[in-house]
Nucleic acid binder design. Structure first.
Lengths: 164, 164
DNA sequence: AATCGAATGGTAATAATTATCATCTGAGTG
DNA sequence: CACTCAGATGATAATTATTACCATTCGATT
């Protein structure tokens, strides 16, 4: 099995298509197509860097020097909410620690953010023995499974649900 | 293939053993065994919750009412550095966004924090079709591969390296 | 018991993000 | 096309998590 880094040319074509469809997708989601949003989604699609809000801000300011950083933060979150973008760092709001040093992965409840350990030996097998990955030196891997826990799944789940 | 959530009883035994070995492991790592560190690693090992610093702080304060929150943050980071703990949220320091909605995973350079996309159809196949995971409802999954990129691998890599 | 570098507590500083709110504008409506 | 208004934006204050700083204390070795 060869792990394949994503091709740059293909990404560019994909980005162009997504940008063309953006207005229609906004309409479907009930979002206004503002120049700021267009500039932000464009900057995001043209970047292969998985940028932070400040990087998008810097890029967009070239065209919209008066845009607010708050707008960039808000817009990126909005885009994620309507499924036009994805936050790579699901749990980025505060550091979470784990004392368990054995190989394992995590199931994260997208709502209450509880994390459960899970073992997937098959996955570890797929990766083990590989020392390299293109130009990258492999150090380890962690699968984050997004899920809804039993408490949050229930329609009238109460308490114990943090944030959101 | 059955994905297996980690068993609670096993975790407790593991935690007890790790705690017994803690002093010896500190000595090996050149760390002083302070009451604060002991309390923090104990709280971490006894929690199955992948806690935040503030949760550890609350727990430890029961025994050490004068401990500082800064000490908790510092100690948790130290424990990760010497391999006694693991930060679940590798990239938690700021949000990273991705405009690519196609199924893919990420290779993260642990040093400069660059992120590259990678496709692993085999992995997607392992997970697809599964609607449930014990009491959790599966929504998606993202593999984070920790690696060292070619720039950071080089002994005298300069520039372009952020943080660290 | 003496020593010393590391660890801690208290607090200030920083960084990222969110909240607030007055103003503006996209996109339907007539 | 002008009108309307919910939603979007900009400016800035507030909040949250984390790190920096530094004087004091303490663990571990002698």
């Amino acid at each position: 099995m060869e792990l394949q880094l994503v091709n740059e040319g293909r990404r560019a074509g994909y980005a162009a298509r997504r940008l063309r469809e953006f207005a229609a997708r906004c309409a479907r989601a009930g979002l206004a197509v503002t120049p700021q949003r267009l500039a932000i989604i464009q900057a995001l699609l043209e970047s292969g860097e998985h940028p932070r809000a400040d990087a998008i801000y810097a890029q967009v300011r070239r065209v919209h020097p008066h845009i607010s950083l708050a707008t960039v933060h808000r817009t990126l979150e909005t885009l994620c909410e309507v499924g036009e973008a994805r936050k790579v760092t699901m749990l980025h709001d505060s550091a979470r620690y784990d004392g368990n040093l054995t190989p394992h992965h995590h199931v994260v409840c997208v709502k209450c953010r509880r994390i459960r350990d899970i073992e997937i030996p098959e996955l570890d097998k797929v990766l083990e023995g590989r020392s390299g990955l293109g130009k990258f030196t492999l150090l380890g891997a962690s699968l984050e499974i997004l899920a809804l826990c039993e408490r949050c799944k229930a329609p009238r789940a109460r308490a114990a649900n943090r944030r959101g």
